[in-house]
Every structure is written in C-alpha cells, then in structure tokens.
Computed example of a mutant assay.
Amino acid sequence: MFHVYVLYSNSRNVYYIGYTGDDLSERLRKHNSNHRGFTGKSEDWKIVYTEAYPTKKEASERERKIKSWKSRKKVQVLVNSALTHTDL
C-alpha cells in the first residue's frame, strides 16, 4: 500500500505534500528529524491528510496532481474535507 500525505508545520504555517510506501509514522519521524531539505527546517510536522493507493504509480500521480494546484486554498479545502468526514 502506498500513501499520499499532507503535512502541516504550525511554526512555519506551511503544508508539505508527499507520498510513501513506507509506514506513515516512520516517514513522519524522518520529516521531523534534523536533515537537509524542505521539511528539515522545523520539527513540528503533523500529518493532516492521507489517501491510500494500491500502486506506487497511482500515489505518485496523485501527489503530482495535488502539487500542480499550486494553491494553498485548494490544499486547505482537501484537508478540511477529511476533517469534516472524520467528525461524522
């Protein structure tokens, strides 16, 4: 199983979109570790949205689709739609 995920850093007030075939909690731990790269600049990343896909290709395509939006508002709508559904 592969996962597309959206992370949010409260200290930077920014979203990050990625995908992984690994365990999501381990991937989050890596994002929150001190490393080079976009997510290495803060240690307060939280998973705020996920989608599961059976293949790497599908997950990769969905990640690229979300990133192509280049719109914080659209990402927020996506994240908020998940929050609304989990509150039911």
Rank of each mutant, 00 (worst) to 15 (best):
Asp87Arg: 12
Val79Arg: 00
Arg12Gln: 12
Ser11Asp: 13
Tyr19Arg: 06
Ser71Glu: 03
Ile66Gly: 00
Glu61Ala: 13
Thr86His: 09
Ser25His: 10
Ser42His: 13
Thr84Asn: 12
Thr86Phe: 09
Gly37Phe: 11
Gly18Cys: 11
Arg12Pro: 03
Ala82Gln: 13
Ile17Phe: 02
Tyr19Glu: 11
Gln76Met: 09
Lys30Val: 05
Gly18Ser: 10
Asp22Ala: 12
Asn10Ser: 08
Tyr49Leu: 03
Ser71Thr: 03
Glu43Ala: 11
Glu61Gly: 08
Tyr8Ile: 07
Asn80Leu: 00
Ala59Thr: 02
Ser42Thr: 15
Val4Ser: 11
Asp22Tyr: 10
Ala82Met: 10
Leu7Thr: 01
Tyr19Trp: 07
Tyr53Val: 09
Asp22Cys: 10
Val6Cys: 12
Thr50Pro: 06
Val77Thr: 08
Trp69Phe: 06
Arg12His: 08
Ile47Tyr: 01
Gly18Ala: 12
Ala59Ile: 00
Thr20Glu: 08
Ser71Pro: 04
Val77Ser: 11
Lys70His: 15
Asp23Val: 14
Ser60Gln: 07
Lys74Val: 01
Arg12Glu: 13
Val14Tyr: 02
Phe38Ala: 10
Leu28Ile: 06
Ile47Val: 13
Ser42Glu: 15
Asn80Val: 00
Glu61Met: 11
Gln76Leu: 09
Asn32Tyr: 08
Gln76His: 07
Ser60Val: 00
Glu43Trp: 03
Asp22Val: 06
Ser68Cys: 02
Pro54Met: 05
Glu63Ser: 00
Val79Leu: 01
His31Val: 05
Lys73Glu: 11
Ser71Phe: 04
Glu43Thr: 12
Arg12Gly: 05
Lys67Thr: 02
Thr39Phe: 03
Ile47Gly: 01
Asn10Ile: 04
Val75His: 00
Ser71Ala: 02
Lys70Tyr: 14
Leu83Tyr: 14
Leu78Phe: 03
Thr50Gln: 13
Arg72Pro: 05
Thr20Ala: 10
Ser60Ile: 03
Leu83Pro: 02
Val79His: 02
Tyr16Cys: 08
Val48Phe: 02
Thr86Tyr: 06
Gly40Ile: 04
Glu26Pro: 01
Glu58Asp: 15
Tyr53Leu: 15
Asp23Cys: 15
Arg72Ala: 04
Glu58Ala: 15
Ser68Asp: 03
Ser42Arg: 13
Lys65Tyr: 03
Gln76Ser: 13
Tyr15Cys: 09
His85Glu: 15
Thr84Arg: 08
Lys46His: 10
Ser9Val: 06
Lys67Asn: 06
Ser33Gln: 12
Thr50Asn: 14
Arg62Tyr: 05
Thr86Asp: 10
Val77Ala: 13
Glu26Val: 13
Arg64Met: 11
Leu28Lys: 09
Tyr53Glu: 15
Ser60His: 04
Val14Ser: 08
Glu51Phe: 02
Tyr8Arg: 10
Val6Leu: 07
Lys57Phe: 08
Glu26Leu: 11
Val75Leu: 02
Arg72Ile: 05
Asn34Thr: 09
Arg27Gln: 12
Arg64Gln: 10
Val79Cys: 04
Lys73Met: 03
Lys46Asn: 12
Leu83Ser: 15
Asn34Ile: 07
Arg27Tyr: 05
Thr20Lys: 05
Arg29Glu: 14
Tyr53Lys: 14
Arg36Ser: 14
Ser68Pro: 01
Ala52Phe: 05
Lys65Ser: 00
Tyr16Ile: 01
Asn32Leu: 09
Asp23Trp: 14
Glu43Lys: 12
Tyr16Asn: 07
Asp23His: 14
Ser68Gln: 01
Ala59Ser: 04
